[in-house]
Simulated scan of single mutants.
Amino acid sequence: MMKRISLLGSTGSIGRQTLEVAAACGITVGAVTARRSVALLEEQVRAFRPELAVCVDPAAAADLKVRTADTGVRVAAGPEGLLEAASLPSADCVVTAVVGIAGLEPTLAAIRAGKRVALANKETMVCAGELVTGEADRLGVDIVPVDSEHSAIFQCLQGCRDRGEVRRLILTASGGPFFGCAREQLAAVGPEQALKHPNWSMGAKVTIDSATLMNKGLELIEAMRLFRMPPEKISIAVHRESIVHSLVEYSDGAVLAQLGAPDMRLPIQYALTWPERRPGPAKPLDLLSCPPLTFAPPDLETFPCLRLALEAAGRGGTATAVLNGANEVAVERFLKGEISFLDIPVLVERALERVPVMSDPGLEDILEADRAAREAAVGAPC
């Protein structure tokens, strides 16, 4: 079990729940970081007394430094501060819970510093999975997934002697708030409706991705990279109850599933305590009070973001970075009321059509693809 963590993105939903797990399991916190949520970060500094606190926004960092001057906690700013937190010498494990491609370089920094990575930033694997896993393999660093679906697969693979025995991975999807809707019903959907997830309490970006089913496409790409599986060996099943978090089908026809209450503290804790298990703050699943468990295929016509993600997964190279960058911009624009819900896949598809795809990219190629995709997603939808 990890004894000391550095937590990147401590003020977000995953970050806050990670601190709950750390407190319950006796894990100390060496660093906390945020973009600019000064008030909440101050509370965390006073509660956990890390050695380092980082605000990426310099003005917010200056404010935090004044607020916490009596604590003795060192405050750093900017992307450099985030990289310092990612490679903190005293930390055993780095939890990467920042949102978007901003998590890529800190994740690489953590790996190069020899830290276990508890990965809660799927965009890192989506944009640069081969690069990240290659570095982890080279340095003998463990990457343990925090996403509930990937944690489920990780757990179901623990007894697997040979990945050749795996027939397929099955990712489950809640279907989001608009499951069963026809496409025309989504034309007038606004952020308030899209942010009402039926099962999970998550940040705004991932909640919108769940509503468009882009989140499941990103997770399929992440699973490809994490578990070294081609896209044709990964399936998606809509499971409204969010009890079965994902499954692994083996070559003999046996299917292993990981079940649990829809509580992110479960996969967070497993990432921090693996290969051990111990009591934690999450309540166990009561099978006798569960609703009937249902499964259905995803609707690619009503939710074209998933189709676009599957196509990008098949193309490989920088196509997945383009997909992710354009989607980040499109979701942000939707949340600001600049575009409609149905415009999100339009902007993503436009970027995929306009930005050239490079095979076997390096870090600079990936970052350039992300930049070009974001540029392509600006402007009125065609």
Score class of each variant (00 low, 15 high):
I234K: 05
E192T: 15
V141H: 02
P381C: 11
M224T: 09
E135D: 02
V348T: 12
L367I: 07
E375N: 06
S359N: 14
A369P: 04
A76Q: 06
R161M: 11
A271F: 05
A373G: 09
L52A: 06
T68G: 05
I170H: 03
F179I: 08
G114E: 09
L88C: 03
R74D: 10
R74L: 12
G100V: 04
A296G: 14
R240E: 13
R35I: 08
E192F: 11
S289N: 11
V32H: 07
E349K: 13
A211W: 00
C127G: 06
A187R: 14
R138D: 10
L347R: 00
A376N: 04
L220H: 05
R228C: 14
A86N: 03
A85W: 07
R67A: 12
N121A: 10
R333C: 06
E135N: 04
A77D: 13
G30R: 02
G164I: 11
R4Q: 15
V126N: 02
G78L: 08
C55N: 11
G30P: 05
A369W: 01
M214R: 04
I101E: 05
D137C: 12
V73Q: 01
D142P: 07
K336Y: 10
A313F: 00
E80D: 15
E301N: 11
T107W: 04
N199Y: 01
G81Y: 00
P106R: 00
L256R: 11
T96D: 07
W200P: 07
E328H: 13
T294W: 12
L285E: 10
R374I: 07
L7H: 05
S340K: 10
F178S: 00
P267N: 07
